[in-house]
Design a protein around this nucleic acid. Structure first.
Lengths: 130, 130
DNA sequence: TCTTGACTTAGAGTCCACTCCAACAATTAT
DNA sequence: ATAATTGTTGGAGTGGACTCTAAGTCAAGA
């Protein structure tokens, strides 16, 4: 699979795909005899994982470290487990923060909906007059 | 309340507090006669809101626009409601993405726990041998 | 009064995660 | 065969969100 096809399938730019490989966020991709990238199934799995992690906001650095650990073999299993658990903690905290903000947003939106209908804000416990 | 006290109370640097004000992410803060910031209750509410939004990962730009709309008065209520709903959509999508990544992470972690105990991976449906 | 520490601004610097560019090589279409 | 497209690299540029520095002002204690 060419870089362009991968780019289209995963809605990610070819520049970003090359960047991920260059910095080690995914292992080196399979190449044709003439040096052109030809993503195989496993390469795609790595791409998918990288995109998933980045979409959740995890740092590129963490993926680079994970890939590095994978490449040194079985002796790094404990370290890899530790890394994954750390990133899970980060995501759980991030989700908690999002939920907190969503609650605040929902309250503000409800006040604004009343304001939009009635022309003025109700008895508003909301911060700074909403 | 001085900038330093606010900085300590909200675990945010004084530089960031000044930056938020400078770019318009919060309205101008109350000052003493000699020009020194003296955050009052309402100023603090704005700081709190700004921090909450940023912690959830919402862009500074969105808060700037919200503050701008608030400052032009009641005619912007509809626009403010629209902005808040947009940001809520962003957060819901972000949370969905985090949940997806958490699921993947949890599966990988479970495989690694087995591997760490037994010394090798179980029949692994996980991508790239975990 | 003097020193110490906290405050002010404007502007420069940093870090992250891309994103773009130049110059060239390989493949595909006509 | 040639033109267009897609690929390659190394390196420079960008945008977002801070973070730091310089040069100076203000306030509280000895």
């Amino acid at each position: 699979m060419t870089i362009k096809q991968v780019s289209e399938q995963y809605h990610i730019s070819v520049d970003t795909l090359r960047y991920y490989e260059r910095v080690g966020m995914i292992p080196p991709v399979t190449r044709t005899a003439s040096g052109i990238r030809d993503y195989n199934k496993e390469d795609l799995k790595w791409v998918e994982l990288a995109i998933c992690m980045r979409n959740a906001g995890l740092p590129v650095e963490a993926m680079i470290e994970y890939v590095r650990l994978c490449r040194i073999g079985d002796t790094s299993i404990g370290d890899r487990l530790h890394l994954l658990e750390e990133q899970r903690t980060v995501l759980l905290e991030q989700r908690r923060q999002i939920d907190e903000t969503l609650e605040r947003l929902n309250y503000k939106i409800s006040q604004y909906e009343i304001a939009a209908r009635t022309g003025k804000f109700p008895e508003c416990r909301c911060c700074h007059k909403c």
